[in-house]
Design a protein around this nucleic acid. Sequence first.
DNA 1: ATCGTTCCATACGGTCGCGTATGGCGCTAA
DNA 2: TTAGCGCCATACGCGACCGTATGGAACGAT
Lengths: 216, 216
Amino acid sequence: MTETNNRQTLSVRDWAEAALEVIAEKGVKGVAVEPLARRLGVTKGSFYWHFANRRALLQAALDLWEHQQTDEILERVAQESDPRRRLARVFAEADGSRYAGRLYLALAGATENTLIQSVVRRVIERQTEFLWECYLDLGLDRQAARHKAVLAYSVFMGTLELRRDAPDTLPAGEAFHDYMHFVGEALIPGYDRSLHRREVAAPENVASIGESNRHV
Amino acid sequence: MTETNNRQTLSVRDWAEAALEVIAEKGVKGVAVEPLARRLGVTKGSFYWHFANRRALLQAALDLWEHQQTDEILERVAQESDPRRRLARVFAEADGSRYAGRLYLALAGATENTLIQSVVRRVIERQTEFLWECYLDLGLDRQAARHKAVLAYSVFMGTLELRRDAPDTLPAGEAFHDYMHFVGEALIPGYDRSLHRREVAAPENVASIGESNRHV
DNA sequence: ATCGTTCCATACGGTCGCGTATGGCGCTAA
DNA sequence: TTAGCGCCATACGCGACCGTATGGAACGAT
């Protein structure tokens, strides 16, 4: 569940990843220094050596998350040349990881923290922008493309919510694939079932982001 | 802002409504006994006379919310005979109150409390059921109606999220109405702009969903 | 062997919120 | 007037968490 880090010492990134895990499980307010230290098998003494305070930990975790949700995902998906396939892949990636979805919703729901709000806003704008360009590449005019992008993003977030809060509402098993095709036909012009290959499993790999600056 | 209650003594409902307000503002974890008492101009002594503990307050608040989100709303909307108009009204009501939307998302995001989760689940199932029946009344077969209902509900929740977390992403002003028509065309078979007359333009009067109207 | 640095443990004071115990004020009924 | 009850204030102990201060073990360098 948590880090089974072979190394004997913890890094800033270890703390940041653990923080993201806790956010996905218990929300932002669940990120407490002492419980997180226990989770990692150490005490607060370790934490306050790596970070100035709790806020600095959240900052590091948010930097990591923002990078994963924008640069990494979009760069991966952008390799697809066909806009239709790009759209299908975006939805597949976004729906691939249950953990990523819970994390996304937890951060979006953190309305108490201005820092988090701005990060979430940037991620949303970046991703809707990407969808917009996909629809523009499909030949839609600016307004129609914009509308479709916003609608598609709403469907994406709403589906995450439904899957988290009322999973029984969504079709299960094979019926879920039928539903996803239905969604594809509603959101992707000229949708074809062959676009939705089996690339569901989004690997949980996380490329390297430069270690955050350690505080003085 | 809060209750300007003329009466000199507080009722259980007063506490429940105040709790819902705080949930909409700061989330469920923001509901603390002592701050809430200060907000109502009293001390904890009052609270623990009306309630056994914090959990009992949440229970009362959830009962109130569930009733408002199911019985009240659906009874109001069900008066509309035309299924298309029912659908349009449902979206209008749901999107009418900013407060109700924030409250909804805050409760849906309370993943730490089993009690809240079950209430949210019931509300979601009740509302999707209603949408399902609307689409059935429009002549769709069971699967198509179900798919459209789930999709429509996803759009609804996703739109709430977008409006809360990245309002600039959604079209503003007159463009918002254009977008809502676009959504209507995507979700309501045989959609006609006349269905969306005045009801969506109500900015604050639909706040009766969430209450605040009884006093003042 | 000594020293300094890295990384963490321990101990402490402080805040906030929960729940309890108990006292007090105002109103009504007898 | 007085007794009783509804409604609230005050005071207390408790636990969880934050941030600081300081000590200590491991380890490489000299």
